[in-house]
Computed example of a mutant assay.
Amino acid sequence: MPRQLNIRSDEAFETARRLAERHGWTTTEVVVRALRRMDEAEGQALRHGDLSPRQKSLHDRLAELGRKAREASPEASSEHGDLYGEDGAPR
């Protein structure tokens, strides 16, 4: 069964619905396409070094925190599927 993402926003729902209708896609396709575009755009910025000095400093600090967290608790995970039922609703 595919994993589920729940977004509780009237604006997001209406925007996805309008785009789906306009392009003949499902709302899921709209969300996936939007996320891919955003991921690609951000990935390009990182690959091309388009970060400001402030962004680079923040990135370095966050990367260091991530490394320290992994070292302190290598078994930790951001997987929280056990908190949700088969229907995607919280247990």
Rank of each mutant, 00 (worst) to 15 (best):
R70K: 13
P74Y: 03
V31D: 04
H48D: 13
D87H: 04
R3W: 10
A89H: 11
Q44R: 12
S73L: 15
A20E: 00
H48T: 12
L83F: 13
K56F: 07
L83D: 14
E11S: 13
A76H: 11
A69D: 05
D39Q: 12
W25F: 07
G24R: 02
Q4K: 15
R18E: 13
E21H: 06
G85A: 02
V32P: 01
A16M: 00
G43A: 05
E71D: 04
R70W: 10
V30S: 00
R22C: 05
A41V: 03
T27G: 03
R61K: 11
L5C: 07
N6G: 08
R8Q: 14
R18T: 12
R47C: 07
L46K: 08
L46C: 11
R17A: 03
R33D: 05
L62Q: 12
L51R: 02
S77P: 01
E14K: 08
I7H: 00
N6F: 11
A76S: 14
L62F: 12
R61A: 13
F13K: 01
D50F: 13
E14F: 09
S9L: 04
Q4V: 15
R91G: 09
H48V: 07
R17I: 03
E14Q: 13
A12M: 12
A16E: 00
H59A: 09
R91A: 09
L65W: 14
E71T: 10
S78K: 05
R17P: 00
D82Q: 06
E21V: 06
L62R: 10
L62K: 14
R70M: 06
